[in-house]
């Protein structure tokens, strides 16, 4: 049950923040479902995109922020490209997720968070991503040790594959970039 009198007044500010940051109007959505029908991951979401939009329309931002939709959406923007109202649905979802992050709402999708963190850590340290290291660390940290190991020989039969972690020269610059992003994640 969604207590509308409450959610519509309490959720108003957060919805306004989402609308402001994404530049989209949630009230524009007329719930046709095109976004969901084109979404390759909708089956895995607890709320498919149109329902996610509906939650925001009803002011139920808490529920939207805690949903797996934001965490699992990988921003392919198919929904945005097909929306008959031209709403950038992917942006609304991503923005809501970012606000949830800022508010410290815990991600239930730990694997994905781990992937993102390891990815960025690798880039922060070395300036470039090393896919093999990422795979190794991910498997180690997630406990899924054999994950994707079958792919390794397939990759290794390529010429020129970098076995060791590549590093760029001006790592100081990259550190500065990450430092700035940490201090000020948004412009």
């Amino acid at each position: 049950m969604i207590p509308l009198s409450e959610t519509l007044s309490q959720g108003r500010e957060l919805v306004a923040e989402i609308e402001h940051r994404s530049g989209q109007k949630v009230a524009d959505c007329y719930q046709c479902g095109t976004c969901s029908s084109t979404c390759a991951a909708a089956d895995a979401f607890d709320y498919p995109p149109h329902m996610f939009m509906r939650l925001l329309q009803l002011g139920a931002v808490d529920r939207a922020m805690a949903s797996t939709t934001g965490q699992l959406c990988y921003d392919c923007m198919t929904c945005s490209s097909r929306c008959p109202i031209r709403i950038d649905v992917a942006d609304v979802i991503e923005t809501t997720k970012n606000i949830a992050d800022e508010q410290g709402i815990r991600e239930s999708e730990r694997g994905l968070r781990l992937f993102r963190n390891l990815f960025l850590k690798n880039v922060r340290r070395h300036g470039r991503l090393h896919e093999a290291s990422l795979l190794a660390w991910f498997n180690l940290k997630s406990g899924k040790l054999t994950n994707d190991l079958s792919l390794v020989p397939l990759i290794l039969r390529r010429k020129n594959v970098r076995i060791v972690q590549p590093r760029i020269k001006d790592r100081a610059q990259v550190r500065r970039i990450f430092q700035r992003a940490k201090e000020r994640p948004r412009w």
Binding site: S36, S37, P48, H50, M51
Partner: peptide, 11 residues
């Protein structure tokens, strides 16, 4: 034909 049934919330 790939569509959404928004009433059940599933594709």
């Amino acid at each position: 034909v790939m569509g959404a049934d928004t009433l059940v919330g599933e594709n």
